[in-house]
């Protein structure tokens, strides 16, 4: 049985809840998997710490919140401090190098420090594209969805006139970690 657990942590408005929903859309509708995204739902969507748990599995999912996280991406210190629990010992952890500084005990995690937010602004041209940048980064680091399906889905999903900038965001995400 394949079961993969992903958590995104950020501050409200950065777009990670969208990234979680996109991941589920692709896994279910294009790859015929079972998947669920459980977002925090609070006033924090307007600036406080937020997270979304995504579970992707070959089998129906019993419990919708992550219990043993394989991949954790976090773009701010405060959500990092709150949401770093329930990570597997060998989890892949990607943090924003400008915004997350104190990692604490990193156990056997594979930790990557990358300027996600800054590269999104500079490389993709708009911070709202953090969602797609994070999605692409996840695809590259985990292979939990296929690259081709991701591109096809984003082309279809992107609002009119934004396909190009979303493709650029995918490129930024794919190149953040060499």
């Amino acid at each position: 049985m394949m079961k993969y657990e992903i958590r995104y942590g950020a501050v409200g408005g950065q777009g990670i809840i969208t990234a979680g929903a996109l991941l589920v859309d692709i896994a279910v509708e294009m790859e015929n998997k079972f998947a669920i995204a459980s977002p925090t739902y609070t006033a924090a969507v307007r600036g406080g710490p937020t997270k979304v748990d995504v579970i992707i599995s070959d089998e129906a999912i019993d419990f919708p919140h992550a219990q043993a996280i394989d991949f954790f991406l976090c773009t701010d210190q405060k959500p990092y401090d709150i949401y770093k629990e329930r990570l597997k010992d060998d989890a892949i952890v990607v943090v924003d190098s400008h915004l997350v500084h104190e990692l604490g005990d990193t156990r056997n995690w594979k930790v990557y420090h990358v300027p996600i937010i800054n590269e999104t602004k500079v490389g993709a041209g708009n911070v709202v594209l953090t969602s797609v940048v994070s999605l692409a980064l996840t695809q590259k680091m985990t292979n939990v969805i296929s690259y081709d399906n991701m591109v096809a889905h984003i082309k279809r999903w992107a609002p009119k006139g934004t396909v190009e900038m979303n493709m650029k965001a995918i490129e930024v995400g794919m190149n953040l970690i060499k």
Binding site: A21, V24, D25, A35, I36, S38, P39, Y41, I61
Partner: peptide
């Protein structure tokens, strides 16, 4: 449940 009302799921 609030959890399921807000979750995106298959």
């Amino acid at each position: 449940d609030e959890v399921l009302a807000k979750a995106h799921m298959d």
